[in-house]
Amino acid sequence: MKFLYQLFLAFNSTWLIVVVFLVKEKYKFNILDEYSTYYSWIIFAIIPIILTGLSFLIAINLPKDTLRNSSVKEIELANNNFLPTYLGYFFVSLGINDISTLIVVFTIIYIFTFLSQTLYFNPIFLLFGYHFYFIKTSGNVKIFLITRKQLKKPGENSFEKLRRINNYTFIEL
């Protein structure tokens, strides 16, 4: 289950490349309406939001873990660290001129995202109220934490409902 979830998270993290390309190229569903282009764009944007929401339901099946407040040594907000990456994705998708190139570029980025398996940053998590943190533990291990909590001081919060995505990435449901 964990492997499938990692595949799904990597997909969700990179799918916005396709959305930007489809909007740029003015792709649309054949809806008999003068506004079909705009309806299509809304559908293109809603698909990754629905898939991200589904990822929270799937995460319930991941292995459980905890992180005691006494083991949190440092907290660093990571929300903004990924903005350059996503801007890069958007600029790449704006430069793609055809579907075959999109497929190749998306596949390469998807494979690298999946194989890195260290972080599964998805900006749509922000819409669901989640935040991203780098946490350094008392054992000097740096982990990536996805949580709705607003973390400010080490040792203030404990995390009893974590799900382990991999050895360095956790999500609190």
Results as ranks from 00 to 15, higher is better:
F56S: 10
F56G: 09
F56K: 12
L57C: 08
I58V: 15
I58N: 03
A59W: 05
A59D: 08
A59V: 03
I60M: 09
N61I: 09
L62T: 04
L62N: 04
P63L: 08
K64N: 13
D65L: 04
D65H: 12
D65M: 12
R68C: 09
R68M: 13
R68W: 12
R68N: 14
N69F: 14
N69M: 13
S70Y: 15
S70R: 11
S70A: 09
V72C: 07
K73S: 15
E74S: 14
I75A: 12
L77V: 13
A78N: 07
N79W: 06
N79P: 06
N79E: 08
N80Q: 12
F82P: 03
L83F: 11
P84E: 02
T85M: 13
Y86N: 02
Y86D: 05
L87C: 11
Y89W: 02
F90W: 09
F90D: 02
F91S: 03
F91N: 04
S93V: 00
L94E: 02
L94W: 00
L94C: 05
L94S: 02
L94G: 01
G95R: 10
G95S: 10
I96E: 03
N97M: 05
N97C: 04
D98F: 00
D98R: 07
D98A: 02
I99L: 11
S100A: 13
S100W: 11
S100D: 07
L102H: 01
L102W: 04
I103Y: 01
I103Q: 04
I103R: 03
V105R: 02
F106C: 00
F106G: 01
T107P: 03
I108A: 10
I108G: 02
Y110E: 01
I111G: 00
F114G: 01
F114L: 10
F114V: 00
F114N: 01
L115W: 05
S116C: 09
S116A: 14
T118D: 10
T118R: 15
L119H: 15
Y120E: 03
F121D: 03
P123T: 01
P123G: 02
P123Y: 01
P123E: 00
I124K: 06
F125I: 07
F125P: 02
F125L: 01
L126G: 04
L127G: 06
F128D: 09
G129S: 05
G129P: 06
Y130F: 15
H131W: 10
H131F: 10
F132N: 11
F132H: 14
F134N: 15
K136H: 04
S138N: 15
S138F: 06
G139L: 12
G139K: 15
G139C: 06
V141L: 12
V141C: 06
K142T: 15
K142H: 06
I143L: 11
I143W: 09
F144H: 10
F144Q: 08
F144R: 09
F144E: 13
L145V: 07
I146W: 08
I146P: 06
I146C: 11
T147V: 07
T147E: 08
K149C: 05
